[in-house]
Design a protein around this nucleic acid. Sequence first.
RNA 1: GCCACCCUAGCUCAGUGGUAGAGCAAUGCUUUCGUAAAGCAUAGGUCGUGGGUUCGAGUCCCAUGGGUGGCUCCA
Length: 693
Amino acid sequence: MPTITLPDGSCRSYDSPPTAAQVAADIGAGLAKAALGAKINGTLCDLSTRLEHDCALAIVTAKSRDGQPDADGLMLIRHSCAHVMAEAIERLFPGTALVYGPALESGFYYDMAFPAGRAPSTDDFAALESEMAKIIAENRPFTRTDLPLDAGMEKLNREGSKFKIDNAQRARDGGSATLSWYTTGTPGSNWEDLCRGPHVPSTGRIGAFKITMLASSYWKGDESLDRLTRVYGTAFATKAELEAHLAQVEEAKKRDHRVLGKQLRLFHIDEMVGQGLVLWTPRGAVVRQELQNFISDELRVQGYQQVFTPHIGKLDLYRTSGHFPYYKESQFAPIIDHDEMSKLAAEGCSCGELANRLGSGSVDGYLLKPMNCPHHIRIFASEPHSYRDLPVRLAEFGTVYRWEQSGEIGGLTRVRGFTQDDAHLFVREDQVADELIGCLSLVKLIFGTLGMNDYRVRVGLRDPASDKYVGDPSNWDKAEEACRNAARSLGVPFSEERGEAAFYGPKIDFVVRDVIGRSWQLGTVQVDYNLPVRFDLSYIGADNKQHRPVMIHRAPFGSMERFVGVLIEHFAGAFPLWLAPEQVRVLPISEKSAAYADEVLAALRSAGLRATIDSGNERVQARIRDASEAKIPYLAVVGPRDAEQRAVSIRAFGTDANLGELPLGEFLAGVTGEYTSRGHESLKSKFVRRQPS
RNA sequence: GCCACCCUAGCUCAGUGGUAGAGCAAUGCUUUCGUAAAGCAUAGGUCGUGGGUUCGAGUCCCAUGGGUGGCUCCA
């Protein structure tokens, strides 16, 4: 006699265990028709699941109560659509081995192994989609069959797919008591797939779908295992929702920093210069310089000292730090001087031999620096330090070079040369906690000032099973605890992730998403007990003995390139006044106002503002349009009327109309205030308040 | 590095083996204008690069560079 509790708190009792579908039907015919699945005690299940015991039940439909697509409903639809796609592919591409096909946040994929040379291409999408449409039109039920582990494994061994056998083994290792198959239709006669489920009741419940792309993947994400083909798609309950989603994806592409970067002429990446090497054009350089000024002001307040170091260093420096051996594959190849090169050539040294000798240290060279820390460490070590001097905080906008894989490079977010707003703090152990909090406050200040609230915090810890990490485990424990405590002090949720630490220490990362949903690490703070050991750093303590300092590595922006890339998307290219490459554009109504317009321009420039004039031959309307497309914060339109009153007519970006006239002096003061306060004071808001409407 | 797709004028794109096109931008002229595109004209391309097939290649094939989306990697 199970009692079923519904989300509204009401209960229903049954004499014999009903299925979730029966309960839905008892609640109402409409719900029964709309039902896609069930949530039983919070677990997503098939609608056909029999409710043997008392439980909390929620019927899952395609729409939540707020009218938006329901996340669970979408999950069911997409996972089911992955099956339909797999069936269509197996039909059109015989010999395909299925591997794994989950639902995703915005769609689904299915990994498959195709016979050599028989993989589909994007040209096959239309045929596959029409095959899928047929399966959906047939509206065949998703039928679940459970087999005991032994019988299930036997069936899989008979069928012989190593991928499915592996999936089953993992299910077994995960504690599953049975193995389940889903047939689209009648078991024995229709297509089936080993699957944990759940699914929608029948294929007809998949409303609208689209195959979106092909990619390669590795079995279990391991590049030493089989190369698979991953087919991506997405599905929604209705065609309208699918179209809305696709439109939204198109819309997001318009604020992609690569698109806006070109449109607004913020940066350029040139084939002739090299992949992943960013050329900051004048307008983008302004944004970067303003950000650097902003953080530099704050560093002075916090007692940092600015240093400059070269772009290369001796290879041995990076052998000592560990960077060269640990990241050999992802660095630019070492630079070897002419004499050494001639000598090696005379000896007939092969490339392989050269690599060996560079590794062992019997040949030295120089390395484009992959990190700034070794240089800063040598500055710290260049003079003795008393415990009274600590913390020593050395800051540099340091440019580093990394040999990223070619397929990974793109835009400003993943590049081969980038500038970190880097600093290294050499601290006593008793100072670690306070200094960490100081570093985090910088990151918070940056995110707060720029209005970037949509980030997550990740504490990256070492993976005890990996041999990638250097140093004493007890120091690691201390460092990890320090990071955890500092992260707690932030007052925002954070996740702890094993295996995300740097090789020399744990870290706290700030991660944001770009417009197409990819995550990027921006700010980072890392605790390091190991490099001070490797470089034998010390300071003289109060006891007149030598002590080992602890290092903190931190970069609140992370890399200027990546940060600006994300920032362009955050503002959709419409930078606030203090960052805007062009802050004010003066628009004379006609040549008759040219003299006064020049006067306004000169006044703006002497006030330290980035101002230009557009005295082109176009009508004002056209020039306003140009300026709007350039996303310039303020337009100062001047005509004879303004000249007479020594005023300007203001138009602000984001407002559709002329805000009215303002005396020139007042405008200058307002814009300057907004600039120097980095947006704390806003001329626009003052101005808008003055307007009666 | 792997898989798929893409590369045509400064930009966005059309061009399905038969004489390289459009819009915007640029330049010149006319217009001197009060808040999101005035009019006319001109110029601009060995179709990423190198091979090949063909009577003929922007179009088909091969190689190579670059880009985009995934995978892997990311100090």
